[in-house]
Design a protein around this nucleic acid. Structure first.
Lengths: 189, 189
DNA sequence: CGTTTCCTTGAGCGGTGTCAAGCCGTGTGG
DNA sequence: CCACACGGCTTGACACCGCTCAAGGAAACG
């Protein structure tokens, strides 16, 4: 399952990573959100703005039509409350990335991105893990679209982190971070 | 009233513009949201992330403590629903700006910013107005923090738009746009 | 007046983009 | 099994946009 998803439906992400993309008329793209399990997926109450949801990895979804959701919310106010909390979290995340996009250097963006993946990819991991190993859910091109960079800059910055022994890279996708604190230092926060 | 506001309280913006700012440890700042009348202001259900709300212009607020809001929401589910819709709009706006921050040039950022102000500053104006005149609610430094640029770049791009007769500038703050379509062409969307 | 703050303008530099070449792993067909 | 093509990634050379640093103008205010 790595196709574009219809946003007129709603889903829970059971496993995998879904990317939310916006595209300018001349083709420039920006990934504006990543949804990990067990996030909720969809935008109720309005015609969607020009937003595309696409699987970034193999994804398992629990999906149902818009009307079903809105009916369920009427019957069960608790559901609307949980939806609100999820959307508030997404808003916080979006604003964190705005700082990265607007004010961080390429090196800081890459470090922040790796940290964010390390902390989200394993749902079981607590907030205070010291090391991490994971497969990148995005290609270099997708990372570039997420960070507002080019493929080449992403590649150069990853090579640089490897050269400084902050990360190891296997198969272009698998990343090992022995000391997350060293990444954090470079994330600019 | 142009002071920092306590985010442990909640408010309706009755008039004026409030800016939401995030700051990195070394002082770099990014404005992550602008709230116009009649927007709602505040972040329920959780310790606030590091977000500062500050009046950008003279502002009138209708403010009340956190607990009052959460009590009112329990009693009146409709309120929680309206809050959800507002937060969904804020999320859409945040994602629009992520595209601007990540993928637009300085010139496009400035054009997009002016368009956005023109459309929000007068709550009465419909979506299809052809011309606009308004006072910028932000200083050059604040515009820079909003667009991920420097003061100098903001100034140069505004001068350039004036040189091309797309806008007129009085008193450094008052902007006149005779043809919004010409701005839209330069906004990159 | 002088001072301050905000803004503009210029000169030069650097980080990131652009363009181009080549590498590596994988799949495909002979 | 090899030859080849292909996509994803890396690396290098160079250009340019936007940043840095610096000087000075304009308006507000003492």
């Amino acid at each position: 399952m790595s196709d574009t998803e219809n946003v007129e439906r709603f889903s829970n992400v059971l496993s995998g990573v879904v990317k939310l993309t916006k595209t300018l008329s001349d083709g420039r793209q920006q990934i504006v959100g990543l949804q990990f399990a067990p996030d909720f997926l969809g935008r109720p109450f309005q015609a969607e703005s020009t937003l595309t949801a696409e699987a970034a990895t193999n994804v398992e979804l629990c999906s149902f039509p818009r009307q079903a959701l809105e009916r369920m919310m009427k019957e069960q106010p608790d559901l609307e409350h949980r939806l609100l909390e999820q959307k508030l979290r997404e808003l916080d995340q979006a604003r964190d990335w705005m700082v990265a996009l607007g004010r961080k250097t390429a090196a800081e963006k890459i470090a922040s991105f790796l940290l964010m993946i390390a902390r989200n990819i394993d749902p079981a991991a607590g907030p205070e893990l010291r090391a991490a190993a994971f497969d990148l859910p995005l290609s270099r091109a997708e990372i570039a679209d997420f960070l507002g960079l080019t493929i080449e800059t992403v590649s150069r910055q990853l090579t640089r982190l490897r050269g400084n022994n902050v990360i190891r890279i296997d198969n272009n996708r698998h990343i090992v971070v022995d000391d997350l604190a060293r990444l954090e230092v470079r994330s600019g926060d």
